[in-house]
């Protein structure tokens, strides 16, 4: 049972991390807790569902959903937040707008397509799990773990080694100064929004596949867990989000397996509160993208 619980934990943890990567990046660069982030997750899952119902294979539906979710993110960011940035409105106004938008988007989606749980068509991908030593892992689960790891590595690479990454870090440090140095902050913001939307959309597809459940509110549930992950990892810390996600996933699985499933959900939030008490800038004490 221990091996299987560790696999369960790593898979669930990778899912949390995958979701949190974009969440923490948004905060790191744009300095906003963007609550619509959870919506991109739901939207990605529905877009891929729509594509697969029209006969697209998952290899096509996944990138389609990710790209479309990315564009949705760019659109929402410019519709909701750029105006407030221009006006230099209070920080809380941005949070409030994304809050209202989240309510609007979730309920609007529910009104249009219903709140019923849906799932990807049976047989979309090989569902028979690989079994070894009495434990099992499915293809989707392997994909989630791999994607989370590769994406985190890729993001860190981009931030450290590319001009765009340098610009992002400069913006995280000080947007005004960045602008003076000739960085097109608008373009960087659009790129970051697109990237975050795409990450959320893709993780929505993968997790929707793994859990066989797509609902309009799936992003809201995930976002709550996401808060715990990004705080534990350190706000804006990409590598921290990966490790924090895995840690929470593993601890949840082990708690459910060896203590009681009643406390499974408490793990993440307990860690969140403890982190703030003991290491407020996250497990690794790095505050943001600028030190990625």
């Amino acid at each position: 049972m221990l091996l299987q619980q560790i696999i369960n934990g790593i898979v669930a943890g990778s899912a949390y991390a995958l979701f949190a990567l974009g969440f923490t990046l948004t905060f790191g660069v744009l300095k906003i807790v963007n609550l619509t982030y959870g919506f991109y997750f739901s939207a990605g899952a529905y877009l891929a569902l729509f594509a697969t119902l029209h006969g697209a294979p998952i290899t096509l539906a996944l990138p389609f959903a990710a790209i479309a979710a990315g564009f949705i993110a760019v659109f929402l960011d410019s519709a909701l937040l750029s105006r407030l940035r221009r006006q230099q409105a209070p920080e809380l106004a941005s949070l409030m707008v994304t809050l209202g938008a989240t309510l609007f988007l979730y309920t609007g989606m529910t009104a249009l397509i219903g709140s019923e749980i849906q799932r990807f068509p049976l047989g979309l991908i090989e569902s028979a799990p690989f079994r070894f030593n009495g434990a099992s892992i499915s293809l989707t689960q392997i994909a989630i773990v791999m994607t989370a790891g590769l994406l985190a590595a890729g993001l860190i690479g981009v931030l450290r080694a590319t001009r765009t990454g340098l610009a992002m870090r400069a913006m995280a440090e000080n947007p005004q100064a960045g602008e003076l140095m000739g960085i097109d902050t608008g373009a960087i913001m659009r790129r970051v929004s697109f990237l975050c939307g795409a990450i959320a959309g893709a993780s929505g597809v993968l997790i929707g596949l793994e859990h066989n459940a797509i609902t309009p509110y799936m992003g809201e549930t995930m976002a709550l867990k996401g808060f715990a992950v990004i705080i534990l990892g350190g706000l804006g810390d990409v590598g921290g989000a990966l490790i924090a996600g895995l840690l929470i996933g593993l601890l949840e699985a082990l708690t459910a397996g060896y203590i009681s499933s009643i406390y499974k959900d408490a793990v993440g939030f307990l860690l969140l509160v403890l982190t703030l008490w003991a290491r407020p800038f996250g497990l690794f004490g790095r505050a943001s993208v600028r030190r990625a």
């Binding site: 909701l80 105006r83 407030l84 006006q87 409105a89 209070p90 106004a93 409030m96 707008v97 809050l99 209202g100 938008a101 989240t102 309510l103 609007f104 988007l105 309920t107 609007g108 529910t110 009104a111």
Partner: peptide, 21 residues
């Protein structure tokens, strides 16, 4: 009915965007 919360959300967005204070 179904659109009640949608309108509620939209009002919040509009109110904050056009009346940030």
């Amino acid at each position: 009915q179904d659109f009640r919360l949608v309108v509620n959300g939209a009002i919040i967005v509009v109110a904050v965007l056009y009346m940030p204070h």
